[in-house]
Simulated assay, not measured.
Amino acid sequence: MPIDAAKALAAEPRSAEITWDHKDIQLYHLGLGAGANPDLPNPATDPDELRYTLESRLHVLPSFATVAGAGMGMMGGLAAPGIDVNLAAVLHGGQRVELHRPIPVKGRAATTAKVAAVYDKGKAAVIVLRSEAADDEGPLWTSDAQIFVRGEGGFGGERGPSTRPETPDRPFDRVVERPVRADQALLYRLSGDWNPLHADPEFAKLAGFDRPILHGLCTYGMTLKAVVDTVLGGDVSRVRAYATRFAGVVFPGETLRVGMWESEGRVRVAVTAVERQDAPVLVDTVVELD
């Protein structure tokens, strides 16, 4: 059934209430590989990692917004009127989170999810699913997921924006490597993404992969953690927004190479898979800073 863009855009937002506490934050951080610093000899525990794992020192990576409430914002958007698509044809094409203030370690928030835009790319459609969260003190975050739906284009809609962040014409200012544990997808999925693509080898083969793949949003979170740790000295409050485009898959057991270009008010990032000749993983990636 074709996408009815007008109906989807006119639909009332879906609302829900979500809660979280330190255990949800710690589980999410552990799913990103927090707890051990790969830059230290042996699998030593870095005291700085306690800001991700110890409840008395905890801060919250802004990318937690993508899993808060088990990621119900994205699922609510896909259930909007006018959106009747085959989930097997759905790919997560990009993600942006804007922070209105730091996320508290314990919280209760009202969320709304809606279709913010529908673009016609010819052979595919791109649906922008927007979820917003606010608590008693005001807005917390706005999260936009760009969902690529194969075979659903050609309905005569707008193609959407085509501008992309400029890539600096110079070597990286910083490069770090972050290993992906062999069991990392199994741990990360406990934060709410239960897609068997990330756990079941047989299901992965049906999807065209020889083994389960890592969640794209896990790579997204690992990358932000690398930027926060190396450029921002661990200060998550400086992150104002974080956007990326997913360009390739990551397999558990591989190594991410995270290259960073620093400039006034932002860090541009490129992420590749080391073991596959630096195959691109995240592109058009920008961390905007306060």
Results as ranks from 00 to 15, higher is better:
Val231Ser: 09
Leu214Arg: 08
Ala273Arg: 09
Tyr28Gln: 03
Val283Lys: 10
Asp24Met: 13
Ala11Val: 02
Val239Met: 00
Leu32Val: 04
Leu282Phe: 05
Glu202His: 10
Gly94Asp: 09
Leu224Asn: 00
Arg51Cys: 02
Val67Thr: 02
Val126Gln: 04
Leu78His: 05
Ser263Arg: 13
Thr272His: 12
Ile103Phe: 04
Pro38His: 01
Ala117Glu: 02
Leu9Trp: 01
Ala270Val: 14
Val175Glu: 13
Val286Leu: 09
Ala89Asn: 12
Gly77Arg: 03
Pro168Phe: 08
Gly69Ile: 07
Leu87Trp: 09
Glu158Ile: 11
Ala10Pro: 08
Asp144Pro: 06
Met1Lys: 10
Gly31Ile: 00
Gly31Ser: 00
Val228Ala: 02
Tyr52His: 06
Ala279Met: 11
Leu50Trp: 10
Leu87Ala: 13
Val236Trp: 04
Asn195Arg: 06
Arg170Thr: 06
Val67Met: 03
Arg268Ile: 14
Val271Cys: 08
Asp46Gly: 05
Val118Ala: 00
Val249His: 07
Val228Trp: 01
Glu254Ser: 06
Leu186Ser: 08
Thr66Asn: 13
Thr19Trp: 13
Leu186Ala: 08
Arg108Lys: 15
Ser131Trp: 05
Gln26Val: 15
Asp229Ala: 07
Val227Phe: 04
Asp120Lys: 05
Leu224Ser: 00
Arg164Thr: 08
Asp144Ala: 08
Val128Ser: 11
Thr112Leu: 01
Leu61Asp: 04
Ala241Arg: 06
Gly138Leu: 11
